[in-house]
């Protein structure tokens, strides 16, 4: 087979492609992007909105209930809402500068991979930071409340109970962090590995 055979075959492609007229194209332009980044951005925006609504609801609950706000509740609130909000904002920012679709494939891929890595690192950092802190504070708060309801404080808690509580917390933290890493890898791992292998192949031709 000679080189020209390929071009002749390519040129003789018989399956006609659909030819969209301007009205059809105009309608297509009104739809939403289904790109990976487009979906991630939309998800982050939805999560930020959900977080803001939940924070307002919790503040309203604090303001209108008869009981005073416990210190543990304030710590949980601060951890969960303002800090999570900051992390979400940084996750969103990771893709704001992604405007490389007009660049050549090598540079576009490079920018895309860097943005994606930044996003995934933030995602993992969020999990590494938030899961342990929220777990410890949450479990401690629940445990304290249960003791207070029984008319006791934390001073008389046997060492064995503390050890059990610590063990449960550590197991939960490891499981939650393992799950979040597995989930991120399942969602984007293969995609990112494929893109990095293409970039490595392109680097040979620079």
């Amino acid at each position: 087979m000679k080189l020209d055979d390929l071009k002749t075959l390519w040129d003789s492609a018989t399956a006609p492609d659909p030819n969209f007229d301007r009205d059809q194209l105009r309608r297509l332009l009104q739809n939403k992007s289904s790109s990976t980044i487009g979906k991630i951005r939309r998800n982050i925006i939805l999560e930020i909105i959900f977080l803001a609504v939940a924070a307002l609801a919790v503040l309203a609950w604090f303001a209108f209930r008869s009981l005073p706000v416990h210190w543990g509740e304030w710590v949980l609130f601060t951890m969960l809402f303002p800090l999570s909000g900051v992390l979400y904002w940084y996750k969103f920012r990771a893709f704001v500068k992604h405007d490389s679709v007009s660049q050549d494939l090598f540079h576009s891929l490079d920018t895309y991979i860097q943005s994606f890595d930044r996003y995934l690192n933030l995602y993992k950092a969020t999990m590494v930071f938030l899961i342990p802190v929220l777990s410890i504070v949450g479990i401690m708060y629940g445990f304290t409340l249960a003791r207070v309801e029984d008319g006791k404080d934390l001073t008389g808690v046997p060492t064995g109970v503390w050890a059990l509580l610590g063990g449960v917390t550590i197991v939960y933290i490891f499981l939650a962090m393992w799950f979040s890493k597995w989930y991120v890898n399942k969602l984007y791992g293969r995609h990112l590995r494929e893109l990095k292998s293409i970039r490595a192949e392109l680097e040979e031709g620079q």
């Binding site: 790109s35 990976t36 980044i37 490389s100 679709v101 007009s102 660049q103 050549d104 494939l105 576009s108 891929l109 895309y112 893109l195 293409i198």
Partner: peptide, 10 residues
């Protein structure tokens, strides 16, 4: 460029 970038990475 745009078409291939979109098809391959996005």
């Amino acid at each position: 460029r745009v078409a291939l970038n979109t098809a391959i990475s996005g």
